[in-house]
Design a protein around this nucleic acid. Structure first.
Lengths: 222, 222
DNA sequence: CGTGCGAGAATTATAGATAATCTGAAAGAC
DNA sequence: GTCTTTCAGATTATCTATAATTCTCGCACG
């Protein structure tokens, strides 16, 4: 009855709030009042405060001493920052993961890509996209690095959801497929290069590509 | 009278504990009992718990639900992980900082290097070394990135202090000087390359260099 | 020698007290 | 008349005190 016995009330609250912040239910700048949150969860304010601390560490909330906690704001500049951090860290993770990648793992990654391409809404696309990245990076076995990447993915998703208010249309992620192809051929460095460009694109302002075509809006996927 | 009006008891406790963990006063695996800590600071356990959450987010402590929190253990594998993350992120930060570097900033960085070279003990060497990195990276103006790097520096310092129990001897940091020289000549990419190698060395096991000499112990500086 | 019970200790949570901040209106200065 | 300052009331964050689960560990018992 008691949910998972193996996690604390504070961590459950922080997960729910994180989910709301990322999905945009709680907009940037919104105040998080501990008593209200506590009441909603039928808890007291102590675990709520602990949840706030975790959100703060994840960069999802900002706290001014004695003035309360607010949902963190973000601008294009921070989106770029997160994108470049992701690019740098995911490349690092992939390089370490490559020696441990098996055909079975790559098959799972391909399944995630297929799921992403056939998604009917942003939420499921984001989940599948995140799964793809997780699957190919996890074998690096670097917990601290993976945790950092997870937090960055949360920030990315937040931006994605905020920008993509309209309907979602299915699309094929050529980058993901190119990464998988390179990995299957043992071309680790080539895969890393594609990944770096793929992730680094997020938030880029309109730019003329080598082929001469112009991207009409900044990219919000990766 | 009330110290800084602009910080909370919890954050003060977390700073003190972080300092103790990094310096090794609190050894890896040591239990952190909230009641004891609370008593020491003349506080109750609530701010202590919040401090624990922050330490957890910084990777300095690990918490098992309902079983308490311990000072995080670390092995050579994690040292390498931190070193590579630092290398990746510091290179990124430096690339963005380069356009904003001024002669005045480089002079301050050089002063930090001089201070490091003339340090009589590990503590002051570490502080000066950290200052050097901070000074040349700060102009990137990427707060999230800089915060991440700070946490990684804390982890690095922890390893340094744990490995270097013996006396400290002054040494000249040629890498730092080479980085400064490159930056003064406007060779940003060269500086980045040196920085990457410099930081990435930390925790490397004995290896034969191109010149044929053998490093007798893994490197613990950077 | 392994298993289960029970006392003690520690973590987690609640409720209440304290102190700081914000709001808004009234009093005073220019 | 407008702007600034000041002060009460209400709201909220922060911390203390206390209660209730949960875990640990020693020791008896099968």
């Amino acid at each position: 009855m008691n949910k998972e016995r193996d996690d604390t009330l504070a961590s459950r609250i922080s997960r729910v709030l994180a989910e709301r912040i990322i999905s945009g239910v709680l907009p940037p700048g919104e105040r998080l009042r501990q008593d209200h949150v506590a009441e909603e969860f039928g808890a007291s304010h102590v675990p709520v405060r602990e949840a706030f601390r975790r959100l703060e560490a994840q960069g999802l909330a900002v706290s001014e001493p004695r003035r309360g906690v607010r949902v963190a704001a973000f601008d294009l500049k921070e989106v770029r920052e997160v994108a470049e951090m992701r690019a740098a860290l995911e490349v690092l993770a992939l390089r370490h993961a490559v020696p441990h990648l098996t055909p079975a793992i790559l098959d799972r990654a391909e399944a995630a890509t297929v799921a992403a391409d056939s998604s009917r809404d942003v939420r499921s696309w984001e989940a599948a996209n995140r799964a793809f990245h997780r699957i190919i990076l996890e074998p690096c076995s670097m917990p601290r690095l993976l945790a950092a990447i997870d937090d960055l993915h949360a920030a990315s998703a937040r931006f994605l959801f905020s920008a993509w208010r309209s309907s979602w249309e299915a699309r094929t992620d050529h980058d993901h497929r190119a990464i998988l192809t390179a990995l299957r051929q043992g071309k680790g460095e080539e895969a890393a290069a594609i990944l770096e460009r793929h992730v680094g694109w997020i938030g880029k302002t309109p730019v003329r590509t080598a082929a001469g075509e112009v991207r009409d809006a900044f990219s919000i996927i990766g």
